[in-house]
């Protein structure tokens, strides 16, 4: 019998936190009853949310202490405003005081909230700075992507500033949204309606194959929980050697794939025999494929 999956994507921010943490361990900070809502949305005639679209607090995974934030993707597309951003920044900075085994960021966001654009942009910069400070103190920061909005705009840069990224097959990670590219550069450059193209270009499988994310899981809470648990206590150094290694990796990709226009060409070059099947295969089979490719490379 196949056990019923508990979808991460379908769940709200609070349900995601409940499912990832040990039962009864979550303690929320700056919770909804405090009503720290956006002062900017009412000016534009927009409704506010009591938790500003992000839930932050602390708890445990397998008995190990973590700090966790979850963006509520259904509120304003998970976009970062002043209060929303400050909650995440404060949470990550708390790691310097409490030294948890990880800071876990469940990102589900289109990026900066345009209704308070300037405050949102500086907020993503502050979150990124806080991520670096935590990492420099040896505390791992883990990004989890599996919501409907994917991880776009400034939040995509935050994600790649962390130690590690875990995403489901449905996850997307890119700085520009498909609609924005189409609107500015034309449909010939990018057809935002072409869902297959969107997944191939920005989806988690492509990102895993080129090494932009570290773990791909099925859209299942237990799978996410397992992958987060494995990341606890594992930090990537933030030093010159590490950045030189990262640089070499990134440089090699650009040199190797200059002028390539479709992800399938990249996958074929990486050794995938049947690039057209990549989108269809389940996470387990996909991960076996990745392991084989990585084994062949090593």
């Amino acid at each position: 019998m196949i056990p019923a999956r508990h979808s991460f994507q379908e769940a709200g921010a609070r349900a995601r936190i409940r499912a990832l943490l040990d039962a009864g361990t979550f303690r929320e900070f700056c919770g909804p009853a405090q009503r720290h809502t956006s002062p900017h949305l009412p000016t534009l005639g927009m409704p506010v949310a009591f938790d500003e679209g992000v839930v932050v607090g602390e708890g445990a995974i397998d008995g190990r202490p973590v700090l966790i934030a979850a963006q509520e993707g259904a509120f304003m597309g998970g976009a970062v405003g002043e209060v929303h951003g400050a909650k995440i920044t404060g949470l990550i900075e708390r790691a310097l005081d409490t030294r948890p085994d990880a800071v876990v960021l469940l990102l589900d966001s289109g990026g900066v909230r345009l209704h308070e654009a300037n405050a949102g942009l500086i907020a993503v910069g502050e979150i990124q700075r806080a991520v670096f400070d935590a990492r420099a103190a040896g505390i791992p920061v883990v990004t989890v992507i599996g919501g409907r909005n994917g991880c776009y705009g400034g939040t995509s840069i935050i994600a790649r500033s962390c130690d590690r990224i875990i995403a489901s097959e449905e996850g997307r990670l890119s700085v520009s949204g498909p609609e924005v590219i189409e609107a500015v550069e034309g449909v010939e450059e990018f057809d935002a309606q072409d869902r297959a193209l969107v997944w191939r270009t920005m989806g988690a499988k492509h990102r895993r194959l080129i090494g932009e994310i570290d773990a791909l899981v099925a859209d299942d809470m237990e799978a996410f929980r397992g992958a987060v648990s494995e990341s606890l206590g594992k930090s990537r150094p933030l030093d010159l050697d590490e950045l030189e290694a990262e640089h070499a990796r990134l440089a090699e990709r650009l040199a190797r794939f200059e002028g390539v226009s479709d992800a399938r060409e990249i996958w074929a070059a990486l050794g995938v025999n049947d690039p057209d099947r990549v989108s269809e295969i389940e996470a387990d089979e996909f991960n076996r494929l990745v392991a084989t490719l990585e084994g062949a490379r090593a």
């Binding site: 709200g12 909804p32 409704p47 949310a49 009591f50 938790d51 259904a74």
Partner: peptide
């Protein structure tokens, strides 16, 4: 206290 729902088009949150 309890909070349910999410503010969005055609939706609401109740605390």
């Amino acid at each position: 206290e309890a909070l349910v729902g999410v503010v969005g088009s055609g939706n609401l949150e109740v605390m």
